[in-house]
């Protein structure tokens, strides 16, 4: 689905990613794990076109994305949910969702809206309220719902578990698993919460200081005590 080849990126003199190479498979959840500052956010921002890489290639279904801007990504079937969630708090819940529906270009389809409301009834009840009235967990539902509005094939999620109670995290991960299994969605999931992420993911990539130090099946990573202690902290 998504393939990174020798991707290198940084901020001026700071190198945040160095020769990162891995693929995220179709219909799978690929978890990218690593400590603070490992380069996970930079990775997603580079993939979605918000940050320019220094070298390397990113391809989606074998097509290199060199000349594609961030705003064209949804039309290609890829949606990035940024760190800190990216709810537009000044808009209402429904307006946030409508934006998601417009992301591919073209008109909004009301059945998409109904589908998301079905998935997250909390949002349906409060559709006309401003998004800043939502709790952290509700916001996470909103941004995932908003991303689903454009029926993406690949979802990039940056730390969806941040600041959420374990129960809510489990709920959200279950939901993701369901979407992947039932609808063939692919997910690139960036997480610090390695234990939960590996429990839901098919595949795991571990980043340390911008380099890939492990690229394995999730179950293999979870069983590797040495790696867990060294990089994943559990």
């Amino acid at each position: 689905m998504l393939t990174l080849d020798k991707l290198t990126a940084g901020y001026g003199p700071v190198t945040a990613l160095q020769d990162v190479t891995f693929s995220a498979g179709k219909g799978q959840i690929t978890a990218v794990l690593g400590a603070n500052g490992a380069g996970k956010t930079t990775l997603l921002r580079t993939v979605s076109g918000l940050h320019r890489p220094e070298s390397g290639t990113i391809s989606l279904d074998g097509q290199p994305l060199r000349k594609v801007n961030a705003e064209q990504m949804p039309a290609l079937g890829m949606v990035h949910v940024p760190e800190g969630r990216g709810v537009i708090t000044e808009l209402t819940i429904e307006e946030n969702l409508r934006l998601g529906g417009l992301a591919k270009g073209g008109k909004l389809r009301s059945e998409d809206l109904e589908r998301v409301y079905e998935l997250f009834p909390v949002l349906a009840d409060r559709r006309a309220s401003l998004a800043h009235t939502l709790s952290g967990g509700e916001r996470q539902m909103l941004v995932i719902g908003r991303a689903l509005m454009s029926e993406p094939r690949l979802l990039l999620l940056d730390e969806p578990s941040l600041g959420l109670a374990p129960r809510i995290v489990a709920q959200i991960f279950d939901l993701l698993r369901g979407l992947v299994d039932d609808q063939g969605l692919s997910v690139l999931l960036v997480e610090q919460n390695a234990r939960s992420a590996l429990s839901v993911a098919d595949h795991g990539v571990v980043l340390n200081l911008g380099r890939v130090v492990a690229d394995e099946k999730a179950s293999v990573l979870a069983a590797d005590d040495q790696l867990r202690h060294a990089y994943l902290g559990f």
């Binding site: 705003e71 949606v79 990216g86």
Partner: peptide, 8 residues
Amino acid sequence: EVARLLGV
């Protein structure tokens, strides 16, 4: 930034 990510 979020707007860009939503294709705007």
